[in-house]
Design a protein around this nucleic acid. Structure first.
Length: 427
DNA sequence: TCTGGGGTCCTAGGACCC
DNA sequence: TCTGGGGTCCTAGGACCC
């Protein structure tokens, strides 16, 4: 039987590439994208990486570097990135309908039915097509396991010699590549495990692959042992085509400025619950449990306060007004006056399918009432989908929103709003 | 002044039971 | 010198991913 191969397609500097796709002026100049609230750096162009700006750093700490080098900064525009991701995935699906969308900018594709010699050519063709149809540059790594495909992708991206595509055909190929992959860059090895491995002289992916079985069995968890097997070409992580239902859905945000009044916290919490409930209904779920939290800014030397509370609805629900009621009662329990709050959020868990909600003996309304609530929510979701997500919303969310997150450098919604369509001008 | 958000899975430890 | 032991379930916290 022919061995299955995995191709991992990963968009290069994805958020930056999305900004560049609609703004060619940004090609060749340093560009970085900031997190929500314009707080951290979450994507960097090659030019910004070369300046030594690390992923996740605080924007204010590198202000001078950005100014001195003319770095173009953008607020995260997730509407744009989500839409562009969909376009990239649709393009990839033309080549391999059986694929696993692993993240907003990555997909695993099973590569079967290709003669060995044409595999690389095929991936180069995919790469070129994605670039032509969407404007997004991608790299592709091909190998017999997902972990090896990740490592191949990493090298294809970093070493210009491979021109964006690298296939590991056999063990010797793999060893040649793995010796250049730092152990911290192996899929599944984070900072804590990397530090542990280094204490035993394991510094590269090849060192980890060659670690003695006995040592691996005694010192690594089941996850670590699985990673070692995958590096050895034994596939342990299957392709996951179906999009799994989320087991928890969260909506949490830092505020644009610290707030201390219960009224403002309630408005923010109501809005976060509204957004979370939209996601909940989007996957056809209802929540049997809510967790609500508030906290002050731990980076400040001001008095600190952090609390969360669990609320259990009498019946699992996705009805926004009801969820807001539960969340606000939890919030009032944990709120303490006198603190400057920096962040709040809600997490829905113990999710059940909306169609299988168990009615409580003591519920105030029967099945008919529930169905009416659901229809109302669906109507509002449709309106907001068409007119923008704040078109219809609960009054509890407030209107002034002085705590709204900062987005000072937001690019237009080029691909999802008619008013933002780029206009081509003849020269 | 300014430091993100949303997920999954594993593990250790406590409670409880027989 | 003595204070059982083993299984299950639940949860908080940690590690990791993008």
């Amino acid at each position: 039987m022919k061995k299955r191969l995995f191709a991992l397609t990963d968009c290069n500097n994805f958020y930056v590439s999305c900004e560049r796709a609609f703004n060619p002026r940004l090609e060749g100049i340093p560009v970085a994208v900031m997190s929500n609230n314009d707080g951290c750096i979450v994507a960097r162009s090659q030019e910004v990486k070369a300046l030594g700006v690390p992923m996740g750093c605080a924007v204010h700490e590198y202000k001078e570097v950005f100014e001195k080098n003319g770095v173009e900064l953008f607020s995260a525009n997730f509407t744009l990135y989500g839409d562009m991701s969909g376009r990239v995935m649709e393009t990839l699906a033309q080549f391999s309908p059986e694929m696993e969308i692993y993240s907003i900018d990555e997909a695993f594709m099973p590569m079967e039915g290709f003669a060995d010699r044409s595999m690389e050519d095929c991936c180069r063709h995919i790469r070129q097509t994605v670039k032509q149809w969407t404007g997004i540059p991608v790299s592709i790594g091909i190998a017999s396991t997902k972990t090896l495909a990740k490592a191949a992708n990493e090298r294809a991206k970093k070493d210009p010699w491979y021109a964006g595509v690298l296939e590991l055909r056999d063990d010797i190929d793999a060893d040649e590549v793995l010796k250049y992959v730092d152990v911290k860059d192996v899929w599944g090895i984070g900072p804590a495990r990397a530090e542990f491995l280094r204490r035993y002289g394991i510094n590269t992916a090849l060192d980890l692959k060659k670690a003695p079985d006995r040592w691996v069995g005694q010192n690594l968890s089941i996850m670590g042992r699985r990673t070692v097997l995958e590096l050895r070409g034994i596939s342990c992580i299957p392709l996951n085509e179906a999009v799994p239902c989320r087991k928890a859905i969260a909506h949490t945000r830092s505020f644009g400025r610290a707030i201390d009044s219960l009224k403002e916290l309630e408005e923010a919490m109501a809005l976060y619950v509204t957004r979370g409930a939209e996601k909940l209904r989007g996957q056809g779920s209802a929540a049997s449990m809510l967790q609500v939290f508030i906290r002050t800014n731990s980076f400040r030397k001001t008095p600190q306060y952090s609390r969360w509370v669990t609320v259990i609805p009498s019946v699992a629900t996705s009805y926004t007004p009801e969820l807001i009621g539960y969340a606000l009662s939890g919030l009032r329990d944990i709120y303490q006056p006198g603190y400057r709050y920096h962040k709040a959020g809600v997490i829905f868990s113990a999710l059940v399918s909306q169609g299988q909600v168990q009615l409580s003996l003591f519920a105030s309304q029967g099945r008919e009432g529930n169905e009416r609530d659901l229809r109302l929510m669906q109507a509002i979701d449709r309106l907001n989908g068409h007119w923008g997500r704040s078109a219809v919303q609960p009054a509890a969310c407030g209107l002034r929103r002085g705590w709204k997150m900062r987005q000072e450098k937001l690019s237009p919604k080029y691909s999802t709003d008619w008013n933002c369509l780029p206009i081509a001008k003849a020269c």
